[in-house]
Amino acid sequence: MTSSYRAVTLPIKLTVNGKEYQSSVEVRKTLADFLRDELGLTGTHLGCEHGVCGACTILFNGDAVRSCLMLAVQADGANLTTVEGLAQEEELHPLQQAFQENHALQCGFCTPGMLMTAYAFLQDTPSPTEEQVKEGISGNICRCTGYAPIIQAILQTSKEPPVRKAGE
């Protein structure tokens, strides 16, 4: 079984927001915990750790996923984007801009997951209807805003095609 990993701690190599990282990670550590604790990317939040709230949503090889439901070791060789990779330097991504303009965040805790979900959603559905936006973000819980301004922000962004790629 030479090609298998077998250890309690494993070396991994991955790309996050365009930057390469190498690390040795305990196999039981979730990807979300790894990003937060070891890479210091604390924008990815933990709201439930059982895959319901969506606060930990990141892009895993381009797909929006719950990072609390993956192990860090599973990200070996992967290309990830977190909320920290959405803006280019000081320039906010149009989605971030729209969230600010529409007061689409109050406490801000769900915001990173919501942004990453919205980003992936718009990649898939560049000109969505309001109903599609509602369905698109229905896997992300916000307790503050009542969703309306978030939906507004996403619709506003969708009217500015093409959506710029994050972290590029």
Binding site: T42, H45, V83, L92, Q96, Q100
Partner: peptide, 8 residues
């Protein structure tokens, strides 16, 4: 906050 730089 939108940048993920909040400090919770």
């Amino acid at each position: 906050m939108v940048r993920g730089r909040g400090r919770f």
